[in-house]
Simulated scan of single mutants.
Amino acid sequence: MITEEGIEAGPVVLAVGEEGRVLLGDVPGEDLYGAGEGVRAGVAAAHHRVQLRSVGAVDRLVAAGVPDLRGVGLGAWVRERLAGHDVTVAARLLDGLDKRLRRLRDCGLPDTLVHGDLHPGNVRGDDARRVVIDWADAFVGHPGFDILRLTEGPDAPAAARLVDEWADRWRADAPGCQPRRAVDLLRPVAPLRLAAVYAMFLAGIEPSEHPYHVHDVPAALAQAAELAQAADAA
């Protein structure tokens, strides 16, 4: 799929093999780490079109094997993967997670396909072509996760503008929804989910690689706890 912004949703699939292996077409250019507000705005607008089209396909996506992290199912998934890790710093957030996720659902945004790691480094290309890559962390769930990841890095005013534009699109396409409230509820949940992703990664890599990633889970948990505390104080 190529959006009106000229951004492709993913590389061309050349072949599909066993155990989920795929052969993807080459994407020339560079990964867009450090991209400015304009590039991020284009990615956000293009990705919104992908998510909007995916709303009606979530059941098919789940049936095809895309992880189902809708609603309180996300809470169970997070807790399962963090089992065995010291979650003391984020215990309060975890204790209230299901309640927070129910409040999030009440904001009225639809579940859809979530990239799961939509930072500019996962957009590759040049002036002629840009492609969203690395869908390994994709899941079905809340669309707010992707705008929060995409707005990490820019200064606060730029990030706020990007979120405002994202909220305007969802208000237009899902009348009656409350996207800004949803983002506020989701802010501490985003690094909490990343902590679970890192825990899953640690569980699957060679023990010799652990020293390079041993701090990933506690760092994400600490960030989640800090954001939750800031939200409670606001």
Rank of each mutant, 00 (worst) to 15 (best):
88 T>M: 08
143 P>L: 00
153 G>E: 02
26 D>F: 15
222 A>Y: 05
210 H>I: 15
137 D>I: 01
210 H>Q: 08
172 A>Y: 00
104 L>P: 02
233 A>C: 12
10 G>L: 13
98 D>V: 07
119 H>E: 11
82 L>C: 08
92 R>E: 12
100 R>Y: 05
99 K>V: 15
136 A>D: 13
197 V>P: 02
31 D>K: 13
221 L>T: 04
1 M>D: 10
179 P>R: 02
150 L>R: 06
210 H>Y: 10
83 A>C: 06
62 V>C: 06
198 Y>D: 11
147 I>Y: 02
39 V>C: 03
25 G>S: 03
203 A>P: 09
25 G>Q: 05
75 G>W: 06
116 G>L: 05
65 G>A: 03
14 L>F: 05
107 C>R: 06
201 F>E: 14
112 T>V: 07
66 V>I: 11
200 M>K: 12
143 P>M: 00
8 E>F: 09
133 I>M: 03
11 P>R: 05
225 A>T: 05
70 R>T: 03
82 L>G: 03
82 L>M: 08
132 V>G: 04
172 A>F: 01
81 R>N: 08
18 E>M: 03
127 D>E: 15
161 R>V: 06
16 V>P: 12
170 W>L: 02
141 G>P: 07
1 M>F: 10
86 D>A: 11
111 D>H: 08
17 G>N: 05
74 L>G: 08
119 H>P: 07
139 F>H: 13
185 L>F: 04
66 V>N: 01
14 L>S: 04
224 A>Y: 01
64 A>E: 01
60 R>E: 09
225 A>W: 02
134 D>E: 06
101 L>A: 03
66 V>E: 01
224 A>V: 00
21 R>G: 10
203 A>V: 14
187 R>E: 07
107 C>P: 01
194 L>S: 14
95 D>F: 12
156 A>T: 12
134 D>G: 08
53 R>E: 09
211 P>W: 11
198 Y>L: 09
193 R>K: 13
135 W>D: 10
33 Y>M: 08
233 A>P: 08
179 P>G: 00
132 V>I: 14
196 A>M: 11
38 G>T: 12
212 Y>I: 15
6 G>P: 08
190 A>H: 09
161 R>C: 00
34 G>L: 09
120 P>R: 01
193 R>M: 02
130 R>M: 15
102 R>P: 01
12 V>R: 15
174 A>P: 00
34 G>T: 08
212 Y>G: 14
11 P>S: 05
5 E>S: 13
149 R>K: 07
207 P>Y: 12
141 G>Y: 02
42 G>D: 10
150 L>V: 09
49 R>H: 05
51 Q>Y: 03
142 H>Y: 13
33 Y>K: 10
39 V>W: 02
104 L>E: 02
220 A>M: 11
86 D>S: 07
17 G>C: 06
167 A>E: 00
3 T>S: 14
172 A>D: 07
197 V>Q: 06
64 A>D: 04
95 D>M: 14
128 A>V: 09
126 D>N: 11
37 E>T: 02
119 H>V: 14
41 A>S: 10
52 L>M: 13
220 A>T: 04
227 L>V: 10
74 L>C: 07
55 V>R: 01
35 A>I: 05
57 A>S: 15
67 P>V: 00
35 A>H: 04
65 G>R: 02
